[in-house]
């Protein structure tokens, strides 16, 4: 089975966000970049498919040179090959999806696996866009699935329950938490991954379809009324919720 796993590099979840001088992006100085947490599930799923069906796992990221770090993590976990599609930071979601699809056409994978969202822009769009560009089915936020022959049965979370879906390979899926337990790379594998080759190609990025006009830090306008735990405090809270906030 020819498996393509797409990963992205994102600021650590605990990053304190500041707006950079351009007023449109975050200040990257001092920010620690990590492998997008959902992509760990995607890599693990790719490796488990290979263990079950044979084949190879290619890890791909679209980004700049610093994104090689996360490709090395994928190699240390067990990916066979790593590809950096280099891009100078001007691509929007569609541009990234196009770069992934362009590379996928040369690889002709049976399955493309992504994390359900990257935790920087949280668009949840990549699986559907890549699926559409490759003209193959896609299923987002898969929490469990099985493959029999070329038939896929998958479950995904929806409001108030789960959907059970059917599709066929080739297919794009995005991984939800709970799909598996990502393995930790072992130290010798981390060391070996440092010297493994990373293929580099350059994305041909078309004009962005969506542009950012500005970025700001949200102003929290919370009431901030903090009470104690006495009977009167609790009564006062209920009164405030009823008469002031009018939520009960």
């Amino acid at each position: 089975m020819n498996i393509l796993v797409c990963v992205s590099q994102v600021p650590d979840t605990t990053t304190k966000v500041a707006v950079s001088a351009d007023g449109k992006t975050i200040e990257k100085n001092g920010v620690k970049f990590i492998l997008n947490p959902y992509d760990e599930y995607a890599i693990e799923e790719g490796l488990q498919l290979k263990e079950k069906f044979g084949g190879s796992v290619t890890a791909l990221t679209v980004g700049n040179d610093s994104a090689k770090d996360i490709l090395r993590t994928a190699l240390a976990m067990g990916a066979d090959k790593a590809v950096l599609v280099s891009e100078n930071g001007t691509a929007d979601t569609f541009g990234i999806a196009s770069a992934i699809a362009d590379y996928a056409r040369t690889l002709n994978p049976d399955i493309v696996i992504l994390g359900r969202q990257s935790i920087d822009y949280d668009s949840f769009a990549m699986a559907s866009m890549v699926g559409e560009l490759l003209d193959i089915p896609s299923i987002s936020m898969v929490s469990s699935w099985s493959i029999e022959g070329t038939n896929i049965t998958a479950e995904r979370d929806i409001e108030g329950g789960k959907e059970v879906l059917e599709a066929a390979l080739p297919c794009v899926i995005s991984a939800q938490k709970g799909l598996n337990n990502p393995r930790y790379p072992k130290l010798p594998d981390i060391m070996k991954a440092k010297s493994k080759p990373i293929d580099t190609t350059t994305a041909s990025v078309s004009e962005a379809r969506v542009i950012t006009k500005g970025m700001e830090l949200p102003q929290t306008q919370r009431r901030g009324i903090i009470l104690g735990d006495g009977e009167n405090d609790i009564s006062e809270l209920v009164r405030l919720l009823h008469e002031d906030a009018k939520v009960i």
Partner: peptide, 24 residues
């Protein structure tokens, strides 16, 4: 709506239309 169904189909609609897609 950016619910489970909307988030699944809207990016495909945008690609089909050559349209910009703004999520969430």
């Amino acid at each position: 709506a950016a619910n489970a169904a909307g988030k699944e189909m809207a990016p495909r609609v945008a690609v089909k239309l050559g349209a910009g897609y703004i999520a969430d």
